[in-house]
Structures are given as structure tokens and as C-alpha cells.
Write a protein that binds this DNA or RNA. Structure first.
Lengths: 140, 140
DNA sequence: ATCGGGGTTCCAGCCGCTGGAAGGTCAAGG
DNA sequence: CCTTGACCTTCCAGCGGCTGGAACCCCGAT
């Protein structure tokens, strides 16, 4: 099986597959003509990698997960630990984005968005007494 | 004012300030000895950039925002549009992360995390009938 | 013989810094 | 006057995870 078919079956672009070989995630054989020769097991690995990446695991996490997957005497605790750490990372990112989102939403709401130059968003970024107003209860 | 003080006042690392000059966000003067000479206005710009970056704006967005900030005949609509588009980007990222979070949380919960090899996380990544069980109502 | 659609390698670029090497400048202290 | 040490300078490389492109090879069909 050539790289094109492996790409089609695994759902990964051929470029990505070559890259994964480059960094040692997979080691396909070679045909006499130099073409990569993928076995079923490699396509499985590629699909595994695609799903792990879709869950946001780093390449290094993927490498570890792949090794654990291959190793029949693994301990599920090792897998779980990786997943839990990744979960924490995701939570941190979500928290950061949520904070940004809250600030931006407030600023966007306060901005008239018309042809006049006055803009609470720029005032906030300039930190010149940015807070729009002390607000009243009806806001929330 | 040298770069060290500008860094201290703006809250940005000196390295980042040099980089910002490199890509044309600021244009500090130079002393006779070749040292960058920062004016107050440049420190203000740097702080502005720091806050914009903290809100997750891209460098190109920052460039646009900075230009609008400088331009007294701006229209707040231009600022607002940039902010709204960025808000959409943030929302997409949050959505993506939230999806990952949900999947991972389910998988982590299903994994025993002990010394045995059986692991629903790996099963899911391998896509071999991953769903743990049809579950009953008490789960949620 | 030629053409199109595969495949190959290698290098560069994306984003936004960050680290490090190799060197210049300056004020203070011996 | 010399040294020390803290600052400053430029330039190059690397992070993650690909992605695009150039320049080339291979293979089957016409």
C-alpha cells in the first residue's frame, strides 16, 4: 500500500504521514522503487494518531500512548495519567480563553461601532480609565 | 530610556520588544551608542500591545488596533469589527476544547487506572468498539 | 514517446516569541 | 588605569506540528 492509500484510509494527509515517519512515530517498509510500503498495522497506527491528535494530545503524548497501546503488559494507570494531565492542560486553556471572552464581550458590547472615533475597546487597551461605567443592577 | 526600563514599565520582556521593533510595531530612536531610546509614547504603545496580546489578538490585529488608536479620525466600527471577529475565533477555540474535554472526561472516568492493561482510552483511540457501555440513567 | 498522476527528498515558512553566542558600552570600585 | 559586572547590541536557531513548493523519479495508459 502506497502513501496515498494509507492517507485515504487513515484520514491523514500524506505530508503528515511523511512527517510522522520523520519523527519516528511510524516506520513503514520500502518497496524496491523507494516508495513507502504501508502494512495494515501502520494504517491502524496512523488512524490512532489521528484520533489522539484530534483529542488534542501533543505529539509526545501520542508517542507515549502509541507505545502503551503496543505494549500488552501496560498498566492502564499510565494511560490514565497522561489523559488526566492533558485534561488539566485543556482546562487551563479553556479558562484562559473564557477570561478573554468575558473581557472582550464586555468591551464589544460597550462599543458603539459607528463612524465616531470614541471607543471603549481602545480606551481599555490604553488602560486610560477603561471601565465604561459603574453600571446598575439591570446589566446582569 | 533604555530597553530594560521600557521592559519594566511596559511589562514586556526586552526580547519581545526587540522583536516588535523587528516586525515594525514600534520604531524607537537610537542613542549615539546604538542603544534604543524609548519615549513615553513608545512605552504606552508597548503596554497597549501587551494588553491586546493578553486578550488573544494576533500580532496583525494588534498592528491594526495600534494604527486605529493612533488615528484620531478612526471609526469605532473598525475597532469593533476586529474585536468581534476575534471573539468568534475565541468561541470556536472554546468549542473545540470543550468537545475534547467532554470526550476525554468520559474516557478518563471509564478507565480504572490500575495495574491492569485494559484501558477504554486506548480502545477508543484504536476505535475498536470504544463506547464503554450503553449506560443507565444514573450516570447523568 | 509522451502524458498524467502517483511517488521521493529537501528546504522554507507559518506564529510569536525565546534562548544563546559573541561582542560593545558604561558606571562603580580597587 | 583596569577590571568587574550589568547592561546593551546583532544574529542565528529552535519551539510545535505541520504545510507548501521545488526538483526530481516511477509507472501505466495512450
Amino acid at each position: 500500500m502506497n502513501i496515498g492509500e494509507a492517507a485515504g484510509r487513515s484520514g491523514l494527509p500524506a505530508k503528515t504521514i511523511r512527517y510522522y515517519e520523520d519523527i519516528g512515530l511510524i516506520k513503514p517498509l520500502r518497496d524496491a522503487n523507494g516508495y513507502r510500503a504501508f502494512r495494515e498495522s501502520e494504517v491502524q497506527k496512523l488512524a490512532f494518531l489521528g484520533r489522539a491528535r484530534a483529542l488534542g494530545f501533543t505529539i509526545e503524548d501520542c508517542r507515549s500512548l502509541l507505545q502503551l497501546w503496543e505494549k500488552s503488559d501496560r498498566e492502564s494507570a499510565d494511560v490514565k495519567r497522561i489523559a488526566e494531565e492533558h485534561l488539566t492542560t485543556i482546562e487551563e486553556k479553556i479558562a484562559e480563553l473564557t477570561t478573554m471572552h468575558a473581557s472582550l464581550t464586555r468591551l464589544v458590547a460597550a462599543c458603539a461601532g459607528d463612524d465616531r472615533p470614541d471607543c471603549p475597546i481602545l480606551l481599555d487597551l490604553a488602560a486610560e480609565e477603561a471601565r465604561p461605567e459603574p453600571v446598575t443592577d439591570d446589566v446582569r
